[in-house]
């Protein structure tokens, strides 16, 4: 069990009276890209948000079950969600840079978590994060320009840089390319593949092609259930469940 970075057992999520996630078990490996696919409203984003307790910010949301990261129950009352989220970073569907400079956007996380002892170290973190997010060459001359002035694809890479600057161990991505054009999407996908070397990446996507391109493991969600989970190649070429097959062949969705 400790082989897995994240292991979830019997996870149930309720939004008020709605049962959004029904008894989901999933184990996610380290240094792997895992894709969650499924039709809209199937619960894949909701499940993703339980992994770093982002659902805590929604009053009516309740989570039951057992989710462990590195063997620790993240819903234990002793766990501080703030520390958890530093360890499990997140990138959102729509690029959401803060209305600050590019530099301040990336430096925000390291600053609040106290990762840098001095300005030089902070500069170093910012530079390496931007490099890892493949934004350094475009941004290095305008670090003090507002982050909101970048193009959509650049903004999303800035958000990725911002997320990796806090040195997380897991990176959650909630449809990171849905607001981007094809070229920007390709850049981000390439980036995800690079990131796999240092993090375990969980990506929610509504694009099956994208899941096939970037992930090693794929989980198919339908109506709040985890229908099938396995090697990406197998899911796309030889699914076991008829529902997975219909979705992949375009009959539900």
């Amino acid at each position: 069990m400790t082989d897995y970075k994240i292991s979830a057992k019997g996870v149930q999520v309720y939004y008020g009276d709605t049962h959004a996630i029904k008894d989901v078990d999933v184990d996610i490996e380290d240094k792997t890209v895992t894709a969650f696919i499924g039709p809209s409203g199937c619960g894949k984003s909701t499940f993703l948000r339980t992994l770093n307790r982002m659902n805590d910010t929604i009053d009516i949301c309740r989570v039951q079950g057992d989710i462990r990261i590195d063997g620790e129950d993240i819903y234990d009352s002793a766990v501080d969600p703030v520390q958890l989220r530093a360890k499990v970073g997140m990138v959102f569907q729509k690029p959401n840079p803060f209305p600050k400079s590019i530099y301040d956007n990336v430096a925000y996380g390291p600053k609040i978590h106290g990762l840098a002892r001095n300005k030089a170290e902070l500069d170093e973190i910012v530079e390496s994060s931007l490099r890892k997010a493949a934004l350094w060459t475009e941004a290095k001359d305008r670090l003090n320009a507002p982050g909101t002035g970048l193009s959509g694809g650049q903004q999303q890479r800035l958000c990725i840089a911002r997320a990796i600057a806090t040195a997380p161990e897991v990176l959650l991505m909630d449809e990171p390319c849905s607001a981007l054009d094809p070229i920007a999407t390709a850049q981000v996908e390439e980036l995800i593949d690079e990131l796999r070397q240092s993090f375990s990446v969980v990506i929610v996507t509504h694009s099956m092609q994208q899941a096939a391109r970037v992930s090693q493991k794929t989980a198919f969600f339908h109506l709040g259930n985890l229908v099938e989970y396995g090697e990406t190649d197998k899911i796309f070429t030889n699914p076991e469940d008829p529902r997975t097959e219909s979705y992949i062949s375009g009959r539900i969705g």
Partner: peptide, 15 residues
């Protein structure tokens, strides 16, 4: 102020 700003910050582990 859009909720996305808050989410972005919480997602980085800010209080």
């Amino acid at each position: 102020v859009p909720q996305a700003m808050r989410d972005g910050s919480y997602g980085l582990g800010a209080t």
